[in-house]
Design a protein around this nucleic acid. Structure first.
Length: 183
DNA sequence: TGCACGATGAAC
DNA sequence: TTCATCGTGCAC
């Protein structure tokens, strides 16, 4: 399985988001390798994006988002769920892609349709914040063979507070995939 | 030092 | 539509 290189993440965030669809998220825990296909994502473009955590500047919570590309930004939400993002663009930009839904491929139990659920199913929590996604226990890879996919673009979920940014179609998912979080 | 609230999910 | 549950960020 071919790990995505650093340069994959060090690019325009919308482009990275779209290209992450169909890729494989791999998480090795206690010697057990879990694999799932990325089927839904959201792009958070940087400090100018009012829906992005980075729009408020660097804080203790979001500092990973301003770190180098290809690392994880994991935060806790509603006191009980974790959300996994991959940092994009150059260090200091404050952009990331939120993984919203996965299709189980190997050793994945429980539901994975939704950011909180997928993190739980893959045992992803705050300990993985700032973790390098080119490491051997947590990475994203291109599948051996990839069928062409149709991509749907919609407004992001749960960002109504963001004014006109809430209307931007920065949520992307694989058309017709049954594991997408909402319809 | 206190407090309102969330890039959610499930129940009702 | 309501609630579980708590770290974070900002007001005071």
């Amino acid at each position: 399985m071919q790990k995505l290189p650093r340069v994959f993440y060090d690019r325009d965030t919308t482009q990275v988001a779209r290209e992450l669809l169909g890729k494989l998220l791999v998480r090795v825990e206690h010697g057990l390798e879990r694999v799932a296909r990325i089927v839904e994502v959201e792009a958070y473009l940087g400090r100018h994006d009012r829906a992005a955590h980075s729009s408020k500047g660097i804080t203790a919570r979001n500092q990973a988002m301003f770190g180098p590309p290809g690392h994880a930004y994991v935060y806790q939400i509603y006191g009980m769920y974790f959300c996994l993002n991959v940092v994009t663009e150059r260090e200091g930009h404050g952009a990331a892609v939120l993984l919203r839904a996965l299709e189980p491929i190997k050793n994945v139990e429980g539901r994975t349709q939704g950011p909180g659920l997928l993190a739980r199913a893959l045992a992803i929590d705050k300990r993985l914040n700032t973790h390098d996604l080119l490491s051997d226990d947590f990475f994203i890879a291109a599948p051996p063979t990839a069928d062409p996919i149709a991509i749907v673009a919609r407004p992001r979920i749960g960002v109504d507070y963001a004014g006109h940014w809430a209307k931007r179609r920065l949520r992307f998912y694989i058309k017709g995939n049954p594991f997408v979080s909402r319809r």
